[in-house]
Design a protein around this nucleic acid. Structure first.
Lengths: 338, 338
DNA sequence: CTGAAAGCGCTTACAG
DNA sequence: CTGAAAGCGCTTACAG
């Protein structure tokens, strides 16, 4: 009933606890035959090293932390986080690292969680999302010397490793595609304006629209929720000179926008074309299925986890550029009906 | 730079480490004045007790485990898990318990994770979802003496504490409501047939339909994904005597079903009424918004976490009945067009 | 009320 | 290649 320790193995194998430790961890210091004997015994009695004892003797906690900073009502249907989590796991599981999760309400609270986790030595590093301008978390991470990887930066120089993707390039592709279809009044419903990648997208959107001579290009800020997506869409469609195409900064708002169009009796894509950022099964779930800017979210997560494990191992890691999102055309985009 | 320990506090306060421990943990054994002094110092230097050391000296790991057994593509848009997780956190965070997450592919793998976590003493208990008939996880949990709470049982006697809800009652309410609207051909697209709560729902659905004299009541099994939800819906709508109302076992399949109806040129609710199980923002996101069987998922999660913490504390806990889901009528249900 | 000490189960120099 | 021992940072009886 009592869970076995290395002392039990040592006794049964007739060796010291040190020898057992070396054998189990693949360290030199034991002969091949004793190693095999020890491993066989460990296997037989179902031994798992006490993680607290390992952590205490200077080894790692073998856990990384992730905080989720979203109101509960949006967390549930935002496919993004779960995709990311799947990706982390694929990488962490292989190295038997655990993932510790905490839901927080504000960035301040998030910083507190980092301090506590690190103080408790509960985790060896953290994955940080939703980077903002002058993000208050960055100096804290730096000061704590807490290994971290930031997702969603702009790729600029930073004291903390970033995984970033060329969102500007992706949105430029989307706009060019819509223009090629014949659209000239293109609007955008953005995510939270504070977020760095929102700013990158907004800048690129404005630039490409200006360069293509689209004077009506307008961005309405929202917050990724369906409610705000609906509100922003209504605002855009109510006007006299309404856009013939809208690009949304996430899939949830795009689905909400589609519902608003249907509710107003507009046909999609006849009267309105819709492009969603972040392709998830949600986009294929609705009718018509949504044209989306796709990327491999869980691959992105796996990459982040890999870099974090490197950072934890003390390897110097620089910023990493992930795959750029690419356009996946589906039924929600077409030439505008004239 | 070095993270402070109780020895640092003891030195600064001029007391023993034991005294510091008592003070920090609210144990008797120190005078009120020294306690206050010690707490002030701890506060000042930002002390957090090393979780490994605490765990090793017999205290708890102060973490609970949750495994997610779903393919990645569905995990992301199934609001259910995130709602549950939010609920856990509300309860766990208050007691500064951490939540450790692991994505698994099969129940066998899940059992391995439990064994490892428990062997490593990484967690103090687990929350188990998706209970099946003769579930292979139950005897293992029992054998390991691993504190656990199971979500989604049928409320029957069990060696492991269950949180369950009266799904039979809820589906009966939904069927009666549809019949009251004038429907007589009611179908159902169910979740995975192995799951215990699917069986409970199917049994209740069959019973209420029989008692109301609905001979056409049919259940098509699916797996909670949008793909299967679409497939099942097409199968139901293709026939000559197609149903005028469909009840879905989750919101994702219901949204997919709505898209299929639209794609086939059927009007919802005119030609087809739709009821979704599990009300999430997803149901309000589409047009028309979906009538749903609502329940407080995150409250459900909080309740589960509370029971688990009780079980960890050695308190004897019996099965707990959670709130029954109730019908929230929205635009997707109406009298059938004749 | 307080101090000194053992012990949790590992890892890792340090001698043989 | 192997053994004996110290130490990680706490908690908790056990004496005073």
């Amino acid at each position: 009933m009592k869970r076995p320790t290395i002392a039990d193995i040592a006794r049964r194998a007739g060796v010291s606890k040190g020898a057992v430790s070396y054998a189990l961890n693949g360290q030199p210091g034991v002969s091949d035959t004793t190693r095999k004997r020890i491993l066989a015994i460990a296997q037989e009695i179902g031994f798992n090293a006490n993680s607290a004892a390992r952590a205490l003797s200077g080894a790692r906690a073998r856990a990384v932390g992730l905080t989720l900073c979203r109101p509960a009502r949006i967390l549930g249907i935002e496919p993004w986080f779960m995709g990311l989590i799947s990706g982390f796991e694929a990488e962490l599981g292989a190295q038997s690292y655990a993932l510790t999760l905490q839901v927080v309400a504000t960035p301040e609270q998030e910083v507190e969680v980092y301090r506590r986790w690190w103080g408790e030595r509960r985790i060896d590093g953290v994955i940080v999302t939703d980077l903002r301008e002058n993000d208050l978390r960055i100096p804290v991470l730096h000061q704590l010397q807490l290994p971290a990887v930031v997702i969603g930066g702009s790729g600029e120089e930073s004291p903390v490793t970033q995984i970033w993707s060329d969102d500007g390039g992706a949105i430029t592709e989307a706009v060019r595609y819509l223009v090629a279809l014949g659209h000239s009044r293109i609007a955008r419903v953005s995510g939270v304006p504070d977020l760095l990648h929102t700013q990158v997208r907004t800048k690129a959107f404005n630039e490409v629209c200006a360069s293509l001579g689209l004077s009506d290009a307008i961005t309405v800020p929202a917050d990724y929720t369906g409610e705000e997506g609906s509100r922003a869409t209504r605002r855009l469609l109510i006007g006299g000179d309404r856009p013939t195409a809208i690009i949304y900064d996430n899939d949830v708002m795009a689905v909400a926008g589609l519902a608003v169009a249907q509710e107003m009796g507009l046909s999609v894509p006849g009267d309105l074309s819709i492009v969603a950022w972040d392709d998830s099964p949600l986009c294929s779930l609705v009718h018509p299925p949504l044209t989306a800017l796709s990327r491999d979210v869980s691959g992105y997560g796996a990459q982040a986890a890999r870099e974090l494990l490197n950072a934890i191992d003390g390897k110097k890691v620089g910023n990493v550029k992930a795959q750029t999102a690419h356009l996946t055309p589906r039924g929600s985009t077409a030439p505008p009906r004239t």
